[in-house]
Nucleic acid binder design. Sequence first.
DNA 1: CATGAATGAGGATTCATTCAT
DNA 2: GATGAATGAATCCTCATTCAT
Lengths: 204, 204, 204, 204
Amino acid sequence: MKNTLSRRERVKLANRKAILSAAEEVFAQKGFYAATTDEIAERAEFSKGALYTYFRSKEEIFLSLMREKVGSLEKKIKESIKVTLNPIEGIENLIKAHLEFFEENKEFFQIMASERGRFEMGIKNRLRRELMRRFQSYLKEVEGVMKAAVDNKELKAIDPNHLAIALIGMIHSFTAQWILTGGESSLMELSPVITMLFFGGAKG
Amino acid sequence: MKNTLSRRERVKLANRKAILSAAEEVFAQKGFYAATTDEIAERAEFSKGALYTYFRSKEEIFLSLMREKVGSLEKKIKESIKVTLNPIEGIENLIKAHLEFFEENKEFFQIMASERGRFEMGIKNRLRRELMRRFQSYLKEVEGVMKAAVDNKELKAIDPNHLAIALIGMIHSFTAQWILTGGESSLMELSPVITMLFFGGAKG
Amino acid sequence: MKNTLSRRERVKLANRKAILSAAEEVFAQKGFYAATTDEIAERAEFSKGALYTYFRSKEEIFLSLMREKVGSLEKKIKESIKVTLNPIEGIENLIKAHLEFFEENKEFFQIMASERGRFEMGIKNRLRRELMRRFQSYLKEVEGVMKAAVDNKELKAIDPNHLAIALIGMIHSFTAQWILTGGESSLMELSPVITMLFFGGAKG
Amino acid sequence: MKNTLSRRERVKLANRKAILSAAEEVFAQKGFYAATTDEIAERAEFSKGALYTYFRSKEEIFLSLMREKVGSLEKKIKESIKVTLNPIEGIENLIKAHLEFFEENKEFFQIMASERGRFEMGIKNRLRRELMRRFQSYLKEVEGVMKAAVDNKELKAIDPNHLAIALIGMIHSFTAQWILTGGESSLMELSPVITMLFFGGAKG
DNA sequence: CATGAATGAGGATTCATTCAT
DNA sequence: GATGAATGAATCCTCATTCAT
């Protein structure tokens, strides 16, 4: 997979990753603005200047990070759905995939939750546009499964968009609360509750 | 209630409100950091210096604003519940109350959505602590109704905390999407869908 | 002339002048790039931040300075010519005016001499364009007198543009040398030599 | 003369020249400060590190370049004079030699014109001192011819220093203007005008 | 009280120079 | 010797906060 890269290139790639990883922590804790290049560099154990060997600007670090993460999320979601042809099972998998991903990417979740509303700003930026697009595409994916399930009469005849919004809202809400209360126990454990509530509702 | 205030005091209060109102717009658009006192002052039609007559710092403007808004939300929620003794109806009212509030307080919603994760930062701050407390208290309120409904066997025997998280997640998600897509049509119209999904689930 | 300005406005104007004056010294000594905003601020006895109350950027300080100076030079040259209708006398006056101006504006001369070649860079800039234009207009002014004298048959039938270039070259050269050797004695004293050489040439 | 150099030494010398040549272009376009070692290295088709094998610092590149060029100019001027024993003819040759040199060394002219005023800075520097010395020596050379011509009564009894300043000023001015207007036609063509104006003056 | 100019700490970014490979 | 990534000092600019008027 990566055996055509020279040693130097492999080092560069690893350094890039280290910077992104450090940035992820800092952005999660402080948000885009309050995060400083100083802190990112320090946490990545690089000089401040080195960041600029790998990225053009602080914004580019941020957007690259988001792009990679949103990309992984999107991929994971797609895969979780494709495993089965049964829409209901697909949605169950999708819930699990989400929780698994957020459990492994707490920091990304925090960043996304707080910065998403501002992705639209500075729309001229190529990376920002791409990010928006990827995010939309991830939402459409979820909507797609919903539609399939509705068409199959396995779900009520509700606008698939609304179904997607509802499910994602629940997932995000549980994840946020899990992080707020320390993120100790496994987030995955909540999968049955969410599944049950989404499909069967709360009424007894 | 406030008719014992001197003219001067009434003016001060009005000015405070004007500043908070201006701040709300700016914080919503730009977030806490990117918002500048310059812009807040300008939009409030005050000098930059005047802000500091009414508030100790930019942070205090922010926190005061949030406190007032979270306070109103909390109050509104409490009232929506008290109207009825029937828990199910209470939850329906609570959904409507939320949507109504967010429809009237789009800016606040945006701010809350993006800054909530960082309320905990700098916890020594009196205002921050109070804000956290108020926010928790609002959540407890929702949880309370859920518990009543569960006890009444009107809802499934699920941890009321989970029920609250699920419902709030759905509400926030719909609100966020509504804002993202322009916030034109009435958010209130979504109340039936949310109610139906929360109580009855998605399964057909 | 300035009696319609409020006190505050007069202070602002004076501060602006103080900054420009400090900048003039620093730019003359170090050139545009090596000059630092720190040093300009310090020499103007202002904080670094204050510069930005009066100017948008270091470049704007530089260009504003140049604009004012080139403007004064242009004005002085025009006036020196208009005094008389006799072209020869006009040129004599023009030489004197130049020397007088450069003697009083040593720093400006140094800046102009070294930065002129790069005025063209970044041509999108409004101020830069204006500066170029002003500079051209000053050259045209000199050319104009030359043409008048040629038309009058008081000067040889040489391209007035060449005459202007030659005279200005001599003036600049003498000024540069005068500054290089300390600028002690009066530059004005060189007026007769320049006049003589320009009109009569070196041949004995 | 240089046939005793080993291959290695010849390569080093060639590399040095390539770097200086690249530096000349960059310094001419951007000036000393705005020129970056990155760009010089790139244009010389060397790595940035290689520059430091051949030169101790960016400043040394600059000064070495100037030294070589000023040296060539000086040499060319000396030769142009020595050809003849007739001072008038010597000056004519000198004008032509200047124009020829600047036509072939546009970049150097631009650099010299804008950086000369700052050669004095950091006078402790050995290279800087040498450069100043060489420049003075070039001026003295011109002054020498003038003195000879004055002694010969072929030129008016004017301080030879002034005569040198005047002539050089004219030459520089014409060169600068030629470059500013694109440097298309031959600069050499201006030789007769300069000669005529210098010797005979402008008066008709 | 209101004003808005002044302050200065802080932050992103650049770039000459060094040095491990 | 050559390379180019890493360094970190230096620099421009921003903006919350203060304070004289």
